[in-house]
Amino acid sequence: MKYDPTNAVSKSKLLLPRAKHDHIQGSVDAPIALVEYGDYECPYCGQAYPIVKAIQEQLGDRLCFAFRNFPLANSHPHAEHAAEAAEAAGAQGKFWEMHDVLYENQVALDDESLAQYAEALGLDARRLIGEVLRGAHMARVREDFQSGARGGVNGTPSFFINGVRHDGAPSFDALLAALVQPNAR
């Protein structure tokens, strides 16, 4: 073969938070980077949601957290629209607020519920649901998905710590241990 198919350097770079592109909590210059590929309708992502919050609290400024969309649309019929709704909320400046509401209400992610959450967050709900229905943010969600497929996402949630996939359990202890290990930059 002429070249290495796993091109590790560019791959791990793809899996670090990108300042202009990603939805980020914390500074991109923070020493520890955690990127999650998630699906709003996935129960395992729902379980990981409070764990990530606890990890963020524990690590404070040392952590940069980025969330990317990886909707498993065949398994989860509402996941794609939920992801696009979060992006649409982001277009109105409230990505993380919507992200949280979606994970806290995983059992109700139909379009009507999405519109209600937008309303409750003080967003222009008509605009948001209109954007979802005409797929205005579909390309963005697809881009996240493709970067994940390319980067080695192997289910949801998939976590990458400083560009490397975390294959351990997505529990608080296992994630924290992996995040603070000495070779984590």
């Binding site: 395992y44 649309a73 065949n74 998905f145």
Partner: peptide, 10 residues
């Protein structure tokens, strides 16, 4: 969810 075949399906 999102096991290997489910993932490849997506």
């Amino acid at each position: 969810c999102g096991d290997q075949m489910g993932l490849y399906n997506e």
